[in-house]
Simulated assay, not measured.
Amino acid sequence: MLERYREIAVYKEDIDFFIKLVQNDIGSVSEIQLRSIAKAIIFFKRLFLEEDSQNHHYAECFISDLLNLLHSLCGESQRLYYTTYRSLIENFVRVLLKYDNSNDTGVRNMINELRDKYKDKGKIFIDYLEGEYGKCCDVIHSNLKANLCLYSYYEDLLKTDEMQDTMISKYISIFDTFCRKSKEFVVIHESPLVNECFYNHKELLSFLIGDKNYKIFESACE
């Protein structure tokens, strides 16, 4: 039992270092939201990378995207943020569908497969994912005027791509919302996998997903 709580103490220290590093990278942003995001990343990392499978490519890409999305906020490009966010959503869907390393199914078919897998119970979350994906595409392929001369075309790109300081907090909130919704979805719909991965680490699981999600998890396992 003491060893289990010692594990939580180690993660708490790791999260504290992580928050300082992120704030040094992108500036002063909500510590509460960064802590929430950090717990989600640790949860997904343990859940998907420690699963008994040799096909970890998309899980590794997903974890990488989670970290890269934060780092993208140190730049000045909205497109970089949304390009990374779009990749994050794609790889999360691939992980949920347990695709092997060579699977190259298109996004539209992936979403359809996701709906088939989780049926009506997953509709609200999948609608949310699809909506977020659409927002990413709208920004990445925004209304640039192809008939402009080269200089004006690039100038227009710079203007529409500029990221103001106030946007960083907004994008952190978008990311935190994704993490919270995704954790809850996984806890509800992949409870056997969660139970298997955290079988002897329930205290850590409660720490990573929060009391509310842990109660949902316990109900799902009954």
Rank of each mutant, 00 (worst) to 15 (best):
L70I: 12
C136W: 03
H56F: 04
Q78H: 06
I41S: 05
Q54F: 12
Y153D: 11
G134W: 14
E130H: 12
L97S: 07
S72P: 02
F62T: 01
I63Q: 01
L150H: 15
S142V: 09
R115Y: 13
C149N: 07
V107C: 14
L67P: 01
L129M: 14
C137G: 09
L129K: 06
D156T: 15
I126Q: 02
I89H: 00
K45E: 14
C74H: 09
I63N: 02
T166G: 13
T166F: 09
V107M: 13
K170G: 15
Y81G: 02
Y82H: 06
T166D: 10
E155K: 13
R79H: 05
S142G: 13
K170C: 10
D65M: 06
L80H: 05
I63D: 01
C61S: 07
K159L: 15
I126S: 11
L66T: 03
Y151V: 06
S53N: 14
D156C: 15
K117Q: 04
N143F: 08
C137P: 10
A38G: 07
E162D: 15
F92Q: 00
H57M: 05
D127Q: 12
L96S: 04
I172T: 05
N143S: 15
L80F: 04
G134D: 15
K98S: 11
F125I: 02
K39A: 01
Y81R: 05
T166C: 08
Y171I: 02
L148P: 00
S142Y: 09
K119H: 12
F62I: 05
N101W: 08
K159A: 03
N68Y: 08
E132D: 14
E76H: 04
V139R: 10
I63V: 10
M163T: 07
S72E: 09
F62S: 00
R46I: 04
I140C: 02
S142K: 13
I89T: 06
D52I: 11
N103R: 15
F44M: 06
R108S: 12
I172G: 12
V93A: 15
E132M: 09
L150F: 14
L88D: 05
L148D: 06
F92A: 00
F62H: 02
